[in-house]
Amino acid sequence: MTFDTADTAGPAHADLVEQAAAAAAGVSGVAFLRPGLADRLRSVRHRATNGTGGAPTGAPPAGVRMTRPDADSPWHVEIHVVALREARTVDVARAVRVTVARRLGALSPPQPAPRITVTVTGLV
């Protein structure tokens, strides 16, 4: 779940989205990032043409949306995860938020701190 606006196009945006997704997926208690409808459709189309599952190489990571209205504003990062049933949902959401904030802060320290919203959309 990503979307591009004029100020977010380019490799810097794509790298930040990938880094945020990797940080979120690595948190203890996260089963996976929730794929959006476009990711599910892309997966079905890719599987039908290649005989394999999953998103094609170079596809944006599922479950992360990064936007900002202009270059001076902080990034707004929305992350949707599915958590493991044995983990406390609130702890998982907090850990994802802190981990992603640290990763993005390390990648672009002079930028204003990103606003991060984490939603746990399911349990497995």
Rank of each mutant, 00 (worst) to 15 (best):
V92N: 03
H80P: 00
G54K: 10
P11L: 13
L84P: 00
M1E: 08
T49N: 06
F3N: 14
T57D: 15
R45M: 07
A9Y: 05
T5A: 09
A106H: 07
F3Y: 13
P114F: 03
P11S: 14
T89Q: 01
V90F: 08
L107W: 01
R102S: 13
L84C: 05
L41R: 10
N50P: 00
V77P: 00
A55R: 14
D7M: 06
G26A: 14
R85T: 03
A48S: 13
E86Q: 10
G36V: 08
P61L: 08
A31K: 12
D70Q: 11
F32K: 01
V124H: 14
G10S: 08
L16E: 10
H13R: 00
A21Q: 03
T49P: 01
A24P: 07
A21P: 01
V100M: 07
R102T: 13
P35T: 01
R115G: 02
A93M: 01
L37G: 04
G10Y: 02
D4E: 15
L123T: 09
H46I: 07
A9P: 00
F32I: 12
V64T: 08
A25W: 03
A6G: 06
A12Y: 06
G53P: 00
A59T: 12
P110T: 04
V96E: 03
G58V: 11
P60S: 09
P61G: 05
A113P: 07
A20L: 01
R94D: 15
D15F: 05
G105I: 03
T52I: 08
L16F: 02
T49I: 12
A62F: 00
A87I: 02
T117L: 07
P69I: 07
D91Q: 11
T121S: 13
G36M: 12
T117A: 14
V98K: 04
D15R: 10
T121E: 15
A93N: 01
G51H: 12
E86G: 04
V120K: 04
V82I: 07
H76V: 11
A62G: 11
V120I: 02
E18F: 05
A23E: 00
H46G: 06
V81N: 01
D7Q: 12
M66A: 13
V77H: 00
L41G: 13
V44L: 15
Q19R: 13
R94W: 03
D70F: 06
G51I: 12
A14Y: 04
A20G: 12
L123C: 03
G53M: 00
R97G: 13
R102M: 02
A38D: 07
D70V: 01
H80A: 15
V92A: 05
R88C: 05
A113G: 03
G54F: 02
G58D: 05
A106G: 15
T52Q: 15
P110Y: 04
P110N: 04
D7R: 10
L16C: 07
T99P: 00
L107G: 13
V17W: 01
N50Q: 14
A59D: 14
T89V: 15
R102Y: 05
G122H: 04
